[in-house]
Amino acid sequence: MAKITFLEAIQQAQAEELERDPRVFMMGEDIRCNVFGTTTGFVERFGEERIRDTPISENGFIGAAGGAAMVGMRPIVDATLSSFLYPAMDQICSIIAKSRYIYGGQAKLPLVLRSCMFYGNSNAAQHSDRPYPMFMNMPGLKIICPSDAADMKGLLKSAIRDDDPVMSFEDGTCWMNKAEVPDDPDFLIPIGKGDIKREGTDITVVAIAGGVNVALKAAKQLAGEGISLEVIDPRTLVPLDRDLILRSVRKTGRAICVDPANRTCSAASEIAATIVEEAFEALRAPVVRITTPDTHLPFSPLIEKPLYPSVERIVSAARRLVGAVEFQSA
């Protein structure tokens, strides 16, 4: 066990799996120069054949990861920012997500497509996306979006060993968070299993990616007022750990879904719908979504920051849900 950051967890997971399996290799723009610290020492250790800088051509190298995977390699692609996935929508959605299905199970695509969601830093609309919900709507892509270093490491290792394509959405607001992370080379967190980050009794808060840390702060603050939040991190969006979420809601009778993505068809929307369909009888109040509203992200910092889910928004929603203030639908 050692206390490491989220970024160091990514570095460790990749290094261990590159070490373990010669079929694993990495591709991405400017990965050799190690801009973010996730490929430290890789070129020296694994060589330039396995640590490949690519031209700026996402549809090309992301699609090539699919082709390499079909013939038995296990590529890890670092797409840098999630916004740069869009030029590769063709290969991701038409080839990577569908080849296993369309060819009746003949094609295997064990690849990992990593990207960082780099929002909240005045990078304007073309660089600030949190686009996992778009890919949740595309069958055939597993999706992980952990919020702490240990989960990041264990899930990324599972993703690299998984025989299906896995997209890893890494929240930039979590990069510097530190946690105790096992150094056992077989430390794995199963894809599809959520985690209760804080136990509570009054309201279930299902939070996604960086939203988890915001929810935990809100929970701490509300504990002082006698409102007890149970904070659940699904960690994986596809497949989603519905049982864990529903069990918690059946206990608390109330739910808030916190999601840094845009509201419409967000992960929060899917989770809220699941709760309403499956645990309606347990609900004592409407299910609330706290998301980024359906606007783009502006450059100007004072108007960007308030758009994301915040402690204040969670706190006031929680107060309303437990009846501390009159309920009005948001």
Binding site: S122, N123, A124, A125, Q126, H127, H296, P298, F299, S300, I303
Partner: peptide, 11 residues
């Protein structure tokens, strides 16, 4: 600003 503060340096 020319983009009313929406775009910034890259735009």
């Amino acid at each position: 600003g020319v983009c009313k503060g929406k775009g910034g340096s890259m735009h």
